[in-house]
Structures are given as structure tokens and as C-alpha cells.
Amino acid sequence: MRPMLATHGDHVPPGEEWAHEVKWDGMRILADSAAYGDRGRYRLTSRNENDVTSAWPDVAEGLREMRGLRRRDLLVDGEIISLNDAGLPDFRVLQERMHVRRATSVQRLVTTVPVTFMVFDLLRLDGDDLTREPLATRRARLAEVLEGSPWQVPASYDDGAMLLEATRQQGLEGIVSKRLSSPYRPGERSPHWLKFAHRFRVSYVVGGWRPQEGTTDRLASLLVGEMTSDGPVFRGRVGSGVGPRQSRALAEAVAGLTRAASPFVDEVPRVDASGTTWIEPVLVVDVESHGRGLSRLRQPSYQGVRTDLTPDDLIPPRPTSEDP
């Protein structure tokens, strides 16, 4: 079974017929007990119906010690999340575990990269297909069934506009608004589920550029960093938004700034460093991306050069003795 998907919304719907949830930056998972009987273990499948059970034993066996749930037949929909150093859900943290299958490596990662399974829908319970039931009914039964379990049922809110603003201030990915009367349509992208993702615009320092594939001089992407008192910390590669006109302007801006080595104070991944022309970290650009406080920009888009800013302007102020 494939999970039900949300469509992009243009405004958060008001009214009592809608509920609103945090949009988690994680990996979508269906957990099904039918594959293993009543032993408290679950088969986990990804959005593309791939069996990923072996990568997440802490999720797959999360209910083993709960005797009541061990004997129950469940099919649930949710998101596996892991937190970054800023305490925010970050899909990139999960990537360290997603493709690992060797048992010894997986067990090590269970400790070093802990995860939480956020369960937001109940599709089957004790043999009863609940997909035709309204969301309000499914959510109520889900909260009752998983009460006290290590799997978490995220909160649902009736004020979508408030939640959208709160998630923006906290640097979260966004929200999903769901019609309480909606059934669950496996594999469909439904207008009864609407998603709203935040985009954040931030200034970064450019530390290098890469040419378009097959060329040596057509600037196609920038390597950018977050400025600190020690120098720029690498935050990713930005190619979206760099069209022909922007490419020509940026090529002029970086002319004469070439240097032999990376200006970033941390190590740049080989996949990004390969083919890069390093430059002195003096050029500031604006970048729009999903999420905030991430170790690497997600879906970044180039917005323009900031001639009014210098790298020193981007260094966060040091806390004073009066700061709490």
C-alpha cells in the first residue's frame, strides 16, 4: 500500500471541519503488524512500497514490550524523524541510517542517531479496515490505541493560521491541514489534505563555484557557508535560480577572487568539492530554502547578491555578561 499524499495549498483553510498538524521533515512510513503476527514486530514500508524494516529495528520492534499492543493487529501511517544539533527535525540526519542494512552498523546507529516514529493515522485495527472512516474517527482511535507507547501521536490543532506562524518562528518545515471528514485514499494525492511549507531567506558567504556539466566556465552553482567568528561553515550548494543572466553576473562578481584551497573552516563533502573553483569568502548572497537551523540547506534557491553586506555583517554577536 502507498500512503495518501497532500496537495499544495494556497491558503490555510479556516473552520471546524479542518484539523492542522506540524509537517515533519522525516521519512514517511507505513507500519504493518500483519507480516509478523502478534510478536510485537512491524513491517515497515516506505512511500515507494520498499521494505525498510531492517534499517529501523528501534521502530519496527518499538511495541514489543507492550503486551496489550503485541496482541493487536495494526496498520499505521507516520513519519520517522531525527533531530539535528539545533533540536529540529532534519531529513539529512536520517540519511545516515536510511540505506544501512548491515546489522552491526544498524545497531550502532540506533544509539548514535536516535529516531522517533510520529504516527498520525490509523488504517487498520484488529482486522477492521478503517480507511473509509472519517479522519476524526481514525485519529480518536489512534490516540486511544497508542496511549503510553514509544510511538508518538503528534498533536492536532484547530487554528491553522496560528500553527503556521508558530512553525515559521520555530524553524519547522510547515504544516498539513486535513479535512476531518476525509477518508484515507491510499496512493492518492488528495485535496482534503493540504500542505504548507515555509521558505526562509538568509544571507550566506560564497566560498566557491561550479561550472555547468560539460563546460569549464559557465557558472552553474555556488558553494555557500554560514559566517562565524572562525570563518564560513559549509551549508550546501545552490544551483536553482542561477539562470543565464544570473550566471553572467555572478561570473563577473567572482572574477579575480580565485584561491587555491577551500575557505570553509569545516570539510566540504567530496561530492561538492569535486570540480569546484574556490574563491575568497567576500561575496554575500541571499538564498531561500526550506527549514531553518539545518546543517545543510534544503531545496535552496539563489535570490541575488547583497552588495550592502560584508561577511563580517553576518557574524552573530557574541553573548554579553548581561545575556541570560
Rank of each mutant, 00 (worst) to 15 (best):
G87E: 13
V119M: 14
R139L: 09
G148M: 04
P134L: 03
D159H: 10
V110I: 13
M66H: 14
Y157K: 05
L130M: 15
I80Q: 00
H99L: 12
T137V: 13
Q107K: 04
E144V: 12
L74V: 12
D159Q: 10
A86F: 07
E65I: 07
V145P: 10
G62C: 06
E133S: 10
P134C: 06
D158E: 13
V145L: 12
R101D: 04
D85G: 13
P134F: 11
L146C: 15
R141C: 04
E144M: 02
A140Q: 14
L69T: 08
D77K: 01
D158L: 07
R67H: 15
T137S: 14
L142D: 05
V100K: 10
G68Q: 11
D73R: 10
S156R: 08
S82C: 09
D159M: 08
D58H: 06
Q152R: 07
M118W: 01
M98I: 09
I81A: 03
D129G: 05
G62S: 08
I81N: 00
R101T: 11
Q95V: 02
M98C: 10
G127K: 09
V110T: 08
R70M: 15
H99I: 08
M66I: 11
L122M: 13
E96P: 00
S149Q: 08
G68N: 13
F120G: 01
W56Y: 14
G87F: 12
E147G: 14
G127V: 13
L122S: 12
S149L: 11
L74H: 07
H99M: 10
D90R: 03
Q95A: 07
E144S: 11
G127W: 11
Q107S: 12
T111Y: 05
P114Y: 07
V76M: 09
